[in-house]
């Protein structure tokens, strides 16, 4: 089971990092959201994996899970939402002020220019502008 969770966390981290490094704001927001998931699950797993054990005081319970990581992750989830909201609105604001959604505020970055040269297919940005 531990292998499985570790793989899940690692795939979410890898995908999150890759998307965070992209040039447009929306994938960056998605990437950070994925990273937030990964971090939350990672923190949660620091209490070790427990199946079917309560975190609620119960005289019948033989053992309890570690409630501390759970409490930390609970607030982390809500804060991550706050961050995502802030970021996506920042992206909207940038789009409105700069007229594009590139992270550097460029209308055409160099490598995307090449893309239009090599590819005759029009991108969505062009379509919406035309």
């Amino acid at each position: 089971m531990e292998w499985l969770i570790a793989s899940v966390i690692s795939v979410m981290t890898g995908c999150g990092v890759y998307l965070t490094l992209r040039a447009r704001t929306f994938p960056v927001v998605l990437g950070l959201t994925l990273l937030a998931y990964a971090v939350n699950v990672f923190l949660f797993s620091m209490g070790r994996l427990q199946i079917g054990i309560p975190a609620v005081i119960d005289p019948a319970a033989a053992a309890y899970t570690d409630p501390l990581p759970q409490a930390l992750v609970l607030t982390a989830i809500v804060i991550a939402f706050g961050m995502t909201a802030f970021l996506i609105v920042l992206a909207l604001k940038a789009r409105s002020e700069l007229g594009n959604d590139h992270v550097d505020g460029l209308h055409r970055s160099d490598d995307e220019l090449k893309a239009t040269k090599h590819n005759s297919t029009k991108t969505e940005t062009e379509r919406s502008q035309s």
Partner: peptide
């Protein structure tokens, strides 16, 4: 309000660099 598509990045150096970073991050986290 955002474009519905993300344009393709064509800098293979950048894409492969980012790929390496992501994969190493994934491995390290694992």
């Amino acid at each position: 309000f955002l474009p519905q598509h993300t344009p393709q990045e064509r800098s293979y150096i950048r894409l492969s660099r980012d790929g390496i970073i992501s994969i190493s991050a994934a491995v390290a986290v694992f």
